[in-house]
């Protein structure tokens, strides 16, 4: 498999899309991101990221769902692909491995909770 490195924002966006029950488009993704991280994102950054993920094959998209406040314009709805799921899993496994190799005492010394899960 080709090694694909995901940036932080890409990873976050991919996770948000994965977390949703149905297909999502730009605005809800951004709202969710803001809620979860407390950081401010520009909508164009979210769009760019979504398109890039689609290009990499981690997301698929379709159009639909025009509303009045959109001026009758359709949304581009994104859904997680199998490849997207795989890459998320891979990332999580890598992280878990790394977490397990951290000596417990080190974190306790700093007064931090040892187990993230």
């Amino acid at each position: 498999m080709r090694k694909t490195i995901l940036g932080e924002l890409e990873e976050l966006v991919l996770l948000v899309v994965a977390a949703c029950n149905e297909d999502v488009y730009g605005i809800p993704v951004m709202e969710e991101l803001q809620q979860q991280t407390g950081r401010d994102f520009t909508i164009s950054a979210v769009h760019t990221t979504l398109y890039r993920l689609e290009e990499k094959g981690f997301l698929s998209s379709s159009v639909g769902g025009a509303t009045a406040e959109r001026g009758g314009r359709r949304k581009r709805l994104f859904a997680l692909t199998a490849a997207g799921g795989e890459v998320l899993l891979e990332i999580q496994q890598t992280r878990t491995r790394l977490w397990q190799s951290i000596p417990q005492a080190k974190l306790e010394l700093m007064g931090l909770s040892a187990n993230p899960f």
Partner: peptide, 16 residues
Amino acid sequence: HLREEILGDLHERYAL
């Protein structure tokens, strides 16, 4: 090919 969805999202956000 991007016009519709981007403008749509922008308008929606504006409404919010």
